[in-house]
């Protein structure tokens, strides 16, 4: 089961002042558009949660927007406040820096703010923070490498889109490998894309005659890397660890695929956690709900894979 740590502080009084009986409450949800698999699953879980909660609470309305870039997200937020008069906001900032100011203004106007996954660049703006743990994501993978590989083993790393998320993960991975005698041959950006990862992995395979393992850091990139390794006919030489918990990859772990021994979670369903908690805080008077809610990354192994396989999810 996913280990959850919930730190709450008192906020009952604030909630009471917002909730008026019989008047419909509106929650605005703003998330990035489905440009890659993980974000796609994020959209899926957001829509599902919104549908479920609208049935559950009669007096609760939702405004859901998906955004392709930070600029559009700022406009979306302005529209939500101006035209829909939202009572609470659940936002996954596209980028931390440009969104900090606009979200701060919304929070100052008395709207409840829940920030998901990407923290703002200033502290104490949001009422509730729900996030995955990028540091634990990199460290969990790194620990597995250290446990499994011998000293002197050679690994290559596929990185994501250059962002602070990617940096945190890679730094934690490197820190875990520090002093283990495992050599990182090279790191290149595969941009969380199957096609880019395929290309980068092809070139790594041409460049290095000996590779023992690949940290693909994302399941989409793992799919691309595996495609390139199979093309080169070197699937017996190395294994690949992805990340996030895509269902095809979890399936392969479950089946005991020698190329995909484990996977590391970074659940896109965290958006559901955020929306649920926000709705609960808004609709149930006096339930304390502010604080940080950090969802740790777990190692998926053949033994526990069935707990992480979701049949209906698109991801």
């Amino acid at each position: 089961m996913t280990r959850l740590t919930l730190t709450t502080t008192l906020a009952g009084s604030l909630l009471c002042s917002v909730a008026l009986p019989a008047a419909a409450e509106t929650i605005g949800v703003s998330i990035p558009a489905a440009t890659h698999g993980w974000a796609g699953a994020l959209n899926f879980h957001a829509e599902q949660t919104v549908e479920r909660l609208e049935e559950q609470y009669e007096d609760l309305d939702f405004v859901l927007t998906t955004t392709p870039d930070p600029g559009t997200q700022i406009s979306d937020l302005e529209d939500m406040v101006a035209t829909r008069n939202i009572d609470a906001l659940v936002v996954l900032p596209f980028e931390s820096e440009p969104l900090t100011g606009p979200i701060q203004r919304i929070a100052e106007s008395g709207t409840w703010v829940t920030v998901v996954d990407r923290g703002l660049s200033q502290e104490n703006i949001e009422d509730l923070y729900v996030a995955g743990d990028n540091e634990s994501f990199g460290r969990t993978a790194g620990d597995y490498f250290v446990e499994t590989l011998d000293e002197g083993s050679k690994v290559v790393v596929l990185r994501g889109i250059p962002t602070s998320i990617d940096n945190e993960r890679v730094e934690a991975f490197q820190a875990a490998l520090d002093g283990s005698g495992i050599e990182i041959l090279a790191m290149e950006h595969g941009n969380w894309s199957r096609d880019d990862a395929f290309t980068v992995m092809q070139d790594f395979l041409s460049r290095y005659p000996e590779i023992d393992a690949v940290w693909a850091a994302d399941d989409d990139m793992a799919v691309g890397a595996i495609g390139a390794i199979e093309q080169a006919g070197r699937q017996d030489e190395m294994w690949v660890v992805g990340g996030a918990g895509m269902k095809e990859m979890v399936q392969r772990v479950q089946d005991g695929d020698s190329m995909v021994p484990v996977d590391v979670t970074y659940p896109p369903a965290m958006i559901a956690t955020a929306i649920e908690l926000t709705a609960m805080g808004l609709m149930s008077d006096g339930v304390p709900m502010s604080g940080d809610f950090i969802i740790a990354s777990e190692l998926i192994t053949q033994d526990n894979a069935d707990q992480y396989y979701f049949e209906d999810s698109p991801y």
């Binding site: 558009a33 489905a34 440009t35 890659h36 698999g37 796609g40 969380w192 894309s193 199957r194 096609d195 395929f198 989409d220 799919v223 691309g224 495609g227």
Partner: peptide, 12 residues
């Protein structure tokens, strides 16, 4: 036939 998949990031 290369990876047998298509998504929103294909052909970007």
């Amino acid at each position: 036939p290369r990876l047998g998949s298509a998504s929103a990031s294909t052909g970007l």
